[in-house]
Design a protein around this nucleic acid. Structure first.
Lengths: 138, 138
DNA sequence: GAAAAGCCTGAAGTGGCTTCAGGGTCAAGG
DNA sequence: CCTTGACCCTGAAGCCACTTCAGGCTTTTC
């Protein structure tokens, strides 16, 4: 299977596949006489594994760790648990941040319902005012 | 006011201040005889404005737009409204994504309560299985 | 007069790719 | 046999928002 077919069958761009190879997330593939990469079904699985981990917001470094853990024949999965716990905490924290951000943005947006002149725009006035307040706080 | 004091009074790193200058978000400051940057209270405000926008998850490009709008003496604030609406939509979408992610991560984490051997770890089994399923779907 | 604190510049590194320039390979059609 | 087009190759640079680094100048303090 050449790189184009692998790309089509996984939805991963060719350039990204080559990038993963450079980053050693995918093994160095065989080559044809014409120097084209040749992939095995094993490689397809590995790439899907990477994709799934990425869809769970793992960094490539974390994916590397998971691959390592998976391939360790009798290692403990403590690392895997720790990694997931950390990731869950990260996502929770980010969600909280974004909720606050939603409130702030909606409140700000409410300050200018009608398109008006900049100098009387509630949003810009508030942006300037908030900068002032930040100053007072420090 | 030298760059160090500006940094201390805003909580922005010196390097970041210089970066904002290169990116033309801050005006080119005056210099002392010894070639040190000299900032005015106006510059402090501008930097705070940038910080506040960044805290609302605006990109530097968006901050640039806001500064432009703010400084246009009689422009309309339609741009500002549009920018905020877009940002709100972005944040909402991201929050939805992260909620789904939270579910997935927690479910995955539930598969391995006790640290065990990798080969029987529910998490790794599930990660491999999910990769398989993705394959079937395409 | 020497050390320490503060400042300067330009370049490179971060992550996770994407894009680009400039090629080589291979099958099908004329 | 030659050309066209699809496919593939490499290495380098670009993206964002910074951060870090190397190497050197200025100012203050003892």
């Amino acid at each position: 299977m050449q790189i184009g077919e692998l790309a089509r069958s996984t939805g991963v761009k060719i350039e990204t596949i080559r990038y993963y190879e450079r980053e050693q997330l995918l093994p160095v593939p065989q080559r044809t006489d014409g120097n084209y990469r040749l992939y095995s079904p094993r490689d397809v699985e590995q790439l899907r594994f990477i994709c799934y981990c990425r869809s769970l917001d793992m960094s490539l470094e974390e994916v590397r760790l998971l691959i390592e853990a998976r391939d360790a024949p009798a290692g403990s999965c403590l690392t895997v648990n720790a990694l997931l716990d950390e990731k869950i905490a990260e996502v929770d924290a980010r969600v909280n941040e974004l909720h606050k951000l939603q409130d702030q943005l909606r409140q700000l947006r409410g300050l200018c319902q009608q398109p008006d002149e900049v100098k009387t725009c509630g949003i810009l006035m508030e942006l300037n005012r908030s900068a002032e307040i930040d100053k007072a706080q420090i």
